[in-house]
Simulated scan of single mutants.
Amino acid sequence: MILIEAGEAFLRHCQLERHLAPNTLAAYRQDVAELVRHFGSIHATAVSSDALVAYTAHLTNPRGLAPATVKRRLACARGLFRWLTRVGHLTADPFAGTEIRVRMSVVR
């Protein structure tokens, strides 16, 4: 399944089956759009653990997003790939065995 199609199917799942709040769905829609912009029109199986680490670096460095935003984007991506694995579109979750840490900055 192409990543953009997978993202749309995941968002429908979140809306219809998980009954997520409208604000959460709007945030997830942004998160999926960011993921698709970064990876382009590739098959979901082509996303590797290393690519996800690079995606995290992209969100943190060139984009300069706040750590909380990066964490939410990664949580959405984790949910997407976990769901794709659970419904049989992926044989392995690329997040499995991957440790990605985003540090929250302390404001003083």
Rank of each mutant, 00 (worst) to 15 (best):
A33D: 12
L20C: 11
L80M: 10
R101H: 12
L3R: 05
N23A: 15
A77N: 08
T91C: 04
T60L: 09
Q30H: 14
T45W: 04
P67T: 11
A27G: 13
L11N: 06
R18G: 06
E17K: 08
R12P: 00
T69E: 08
L84Q: 02
P22I: 10
R78T: 04
H58N: 10
I2N: 12
L3N: 04
T56C: 15
P22G: 10
H19P: 00
Y28R: 11
I4D: 12
P62I: 01
L80V: 09
R103H: 14
A9Y: 00
R73W: 01
L35W: 04
V106P: 03
E8P: 00
A33E: 12
L84P: 01
G97R: 10
A96N: 10
R78W: 06
M1W: 03
A44N: 03
E8H: 09
D31W: 09
V70F: 02
V53A: 15
S48H: 06
W83K: 05
G97A: 11
H13A: 05
A9G: 02
P67N: 12
S49L: 03
T91N: 08
A68R: 15
G40M: 09
A66V: 05
L52R: 05
H89F: 08
C76M: 14
E8C: 01
R108F: 08
G40C: 10
I42A: 08
V53F: 12
E5K: 13
R103S: 14
L3G: 03
D93V: 07
T98L: 15
I2L: 14
R73Y: 08
T69P: 07
L20G: 06
R63C: 06
A44S: 09
A51F: 03
N23K: 14
M104V: 10
T56Y: 01
A77M: 09
T24V: 11
L35T: 02
A57F: 10
A21K: 13
F10L: 02
R18E: 12
R72Q: 06
A27S: 14
H19F: 13
R78Q: 14
Q15H: 11
A54L: 14
S105C: 08
R72S: 04
R12F: 07
L90E: 01
L35F: 11
A51N: 04
M104F: 09
H58G: 02
V70E: 01
F39S: 07
L16Y: 10
I100K: 03
L11P: 04
G97F: 09
A66D: 11
L25P: 09
T98N: 09
V87C: 02
M1Q: 05
A33N: 11
H58Q: 09
L3D: 05
A51H: 09
L35I: 06
A75R: 06
V47H: 02
R37A: 12
A54V: 13
C14K: 11
S105H: 14
R103P: 04
V36K: 01
G64W: 01
D31T: 11
R103Q: 15
H38A: 07
R63Q: 06
A44I: 13
P22A: 14
R72M: 06
